[in-house]
Design a protein around this nucleic acid. Structure first.
Lengths: 157, 157
DNA sequence: TCCTGTGTTGACGTTTACGTCAGGGGCGGG
DNA sequence: CCCGCCCCTGACGTAAACGTCAACACAGGA
């Protein structure tokens, strides 16, 4: 206990993490991180054979995880990360970049519409459930926004 | 060509579809539809052995497809469809329903935040790309909303 | 010196969501 | 009566995204 609690902190440290530290921080498994690397999503520095993750790696991994939450495949996420990389660098092949970005924007906008539709419907169901509980039983709103028209439930729009 | 173009339209018809008709209409394969049925997501009427899909089945399938676009597993979609079913009927086990609905609402709201973050970032990248193209080359906006702060690109928030 | 803990690279297992035959039935047309 | 077309039910194949296990290396402590 003289220096620190970390079991194998990389060299001089400086916000750098081992794989299991990063994994714990982002709530994934080391295996998953290695897998993402094998898929070309991240390329951490190495000290000898050991992987060392800096801020940028962590940021990239966060983007990967966000993409996953949005339901994209690792391949799609890779393509999408390349947008950032391209934008980050000298911005070459700008037209290609623009195409990809816009395609992704369209997808996301559709997805957002889907989500909003679903939230509306779930909001209606929630209201109906609350009404059926007779209110006053300790039930409170969950945070969903306005519920426009309390039409019939079950129609997907 | 005396009656209709359908090869095997169910009995008296009335908006009812065969599996391949429904599949074509929603741009999925018959196999996928059968698979969803085996997963308990839809239960079409049968004429003898043949599946016959009505309005409600079509609506349910649309919900399934929306759920898929949002990145949910079929199991999750099933649980989620049950919310609709419960709400549709006599609304029993209302508390359970409410819990599920709210849990799903929370997930969706998180997802929506993710999408909005990503759209912002992509919007910035798009703007930067447009700037780099020098404008006037026939480039127009894609439809993405306002882009608040043109900060550095690459930070995942 | 040996043990423990953490790291590495394969390699195989598993789950999900279908794709792809194989095998068989029913029905209208030529 | 046979053909072609659509339907059905298995059953096996597959791609993605890891989980799990084996075998090995290295570093620090009792």
């Amino acid at each position: 206990m003289s220096d620190a609690g970390e079991p194998a902190a990389p060299t001089g440290d400086g916000g750098e993490l081992t794989i299991s530290q990063l994994a714990a921080a982002l709530e994934v498994t080391p295996r998953a991180i290695r897998f993402y690397e094998s898929a070309g999503l991240i390329q951490p520095r190495r000290i000898g054979t050991m992987r060392v993750y800096g801020h940028r790696d962590r940021a990239r991994l966060l983007l990967v995880l966000r993409g996953k939450r949005l339901g994209f495949s690792l391949a799609e996420i890779r393509e999408w990360l390349e947008c950032y990389a391209l934008a980050d660098g000298q911005i070459r092949q700008t037209r290609l970049l623009l195409e990809r970005v816009r395609s992704r924007i369209r997808e996301l906008e559709r997805q957002r519409r889907d989500i909003e539709l679903t939230l509306e419907e779930l909001g209606r169901i929630e209201q109906e459930a609350i009404r059926h509980l007779g209110a006053g039983t300790g039930v409170r709103r969950s945070g969903a926004g306005a519920v426009p028209a309390p039409r019939c439930v079950g129609g997907p729009g």
